[in-house]
Design a protein around this nucleic acid. Structure first.
Lengths: 324, 324
DNA sequence: GTGAAAGCGCTAACAT
DNA sequence: ATGTTAGCGCTTTCAC
């Protein structure tokens, strides 16, 4: 393996000069620069990033933690993060935690280990205190609401999304509205739940505890929810569902069972995923990619020691289709 | 920052001993080991991975290159890769190329740079010669057919998938069958195209060049294809579509325009993605996650200098639903 | 403009 | 069972 010393020898200069050429430093005589570049070419020299990383004390790698990648919300988020990483010349390390606590901790070790320069939390179940402690080891940005003082956050206005959905259903006359969310312990889940029940109290809707579904992620979960609902003594007339995929499953199974939507039952999804177009699902659009973009921007600013807003929130949009 | 030397001093041993404790080497007296571990605890010592990487000459990071993450096929693939990485203690670096050649080359530099130990090609447009050359710099496994001698490959039997789809349509009486695929320059695209036209020739189906659609990825692309087809003088009676998402779009728009499916027109998709369940799409299931799993297994074996099969192929399965 | 030399933090061959 | 020592390949002060 040819290294910087080989180049220096062959080119008849010092390693320092080679390093300068490599890093586009000024103060290198053009002729020498050319010789060095030529030698690099001749010897097929490739710098060793590990050495550079060790020497510089950073890696230009950003880590992102999510429960799992194969979910439209997280795919979009990662896509947004990935694009912005490319812009700043960061590499992107993706870590799937399955919301498993010990896995999450393992991931944060990479920050301590200096293997990654910063962390973007797509979703994570660690407590605020733990996160605050982690933030001593490097820059962290969260893409979900997080009850911490030390971590910059960017997310969509989840409360507003719930408001939009509930208000829309209320406008259409619904008074018995159920809620279905994904991970109930995540920042997103908690905000949504809180916003929903605040509205419940405010409007004094009718309510039954079995109208609340949590930890639902897939189409099949949706099938199950529909069947479950049909078995209930008293049923809601509408459902706010935190994921288009689950909403589509519910919709499908309800119609399968002869329930007319939106005639007898209304559904609002979240995300405006491709499936919502096919299912003609009323949904709340969330600029997820944009969240990813901004997360990287924040991390970059933090890396440059600049100040960043503690919380950045993005607007949502109701897309009315055929299920309300 | 506390390092191994600090620990050694404080614990009254040599750096080597500390290193041995850290790496669970035998031949360390239990008492010393305990002192070292205690000191590590006391000083909040965390090993620096960059130093380890430099010293060991590897990083335990695997890179995977895909056009974009936000596509069900690639999400599944990454999920499968990610899980297996976790098993072998690899980290996963995800690189979105957008099929852009210069981006692809940039990615392979990371292998040369020693920043990653191995590469999994999810999809990539580099020529065989280029890939063969790259393989000198580290282990590479491809998840698509690749015309190279030096790269281990694992993929589903794309030809068989096309066969299944076409035979199924033929069984149902279709003689005018169109084809719609994604990236036509990728390994998958090329295999599918070839298999399809081989069958065309064999069965002497009726054919028109405008029954071939390429570079189609989204639901909206599907809408467009449907409209385009309806405008054609002579239309096919069935379409084999390389992606469920596109197939769902076509289906939706056709029905929107009053075409009865499967009455007047038949559609077969690929992947058995969630959307195919909702759309009741006949589709070809591909064990994509499994492909990802195996890719990592192969890389791991290569890392251990073991022999691996040059080509591994996985079986597909026709899932008959309501569009054929 | 250029180079010598001292790190960066860890591993591993070798000696004891 | 433990320590000495020489790297791993690059960056960066500092002196000239």
């Amino acid at each position: 393996m040819t290294n910087i010393t080989d180049i220096a020898k062959k080119a008849g200069v010092s390693r320092t000069t080679v390093s300068r050429v490599l890093n586009n430093h000024p103060y290198v005589k053009p002729e020498k620069r050319d010789v060095v570049l030529q030698t690099i070419e001749d010897l097929n020299y490739v710098p060793n990033l590990n050495a550079i990383n060790l020497s510089r004390g950073r890696t230009n790698i950003i880590g992102v933690i999510i429960p799992r990648i194969n979910h439209p919300y997280f795919s979009s988020l990662i896509e947004g993060i990935g694009e912005q990483c490319h812009k700043y010349d960061y590499s992107l390390l993706v870590y799937q935690s399955h919301n498993n606590l010990s896995r999450e901790l393992l991931f944060f070790d990479m920050l301590k280990n200096k293997q990654i320069d910063g962390i973007i939390i797509g979703s994570c179940t660690l407590q605020a205190t733990a996160l605050n402690e982690m933030s001593h080891f490097g820059n962290i940005v969260s893409c979900e609401y997080s009850d911490t003082s030390s971590i910059a956050q960017v997310f969509v206005k989840h409360e507003e999304g719930i408001h939009m959905a509930v208000d829309h259903l209320r406008d259409r006359g619904h008074q018995k509205i159920g809620l279905c969310i994904g991970n109930s312990r995540s920042g997103v889940g908690m905000s949504r739940k809180k916003a929903f029940f605040d509205l419940q109290n405010k409007h004094r809707f009718i309510w039954r505890d079995d109208w609340y579904y949590k930890d639902q992620y897939t189409i099949e979960d949706g099938f199950q929810i529909a069947r479950n609902m049909l078995g209930q003594q008293e049923r809601p007339t509408a459902l706010v569902v935190g994921s288009d995929q689950v909403a589509a499953g519910i919709l499908y199974e309800l119609r399968e069972q002869g329930v007319s939507v939106p005639g007898e039952f209304a559904i609002v999804g979240f995300d405006n995923q491709p499936i919502s177009k096919i299912a003609e699902l009323t949904t709340i659009y969330q600029p997820v990619q944009k969240v990813g973009n901004i997360a990287v921007d924040l991390l970059q600013k933090l890396a440059l020691q600049k100040d960043v807003p503690h919380v950045t929130q993005l607007d949502l949009q109701l897309i009315k289709r055929n299920t309300t």
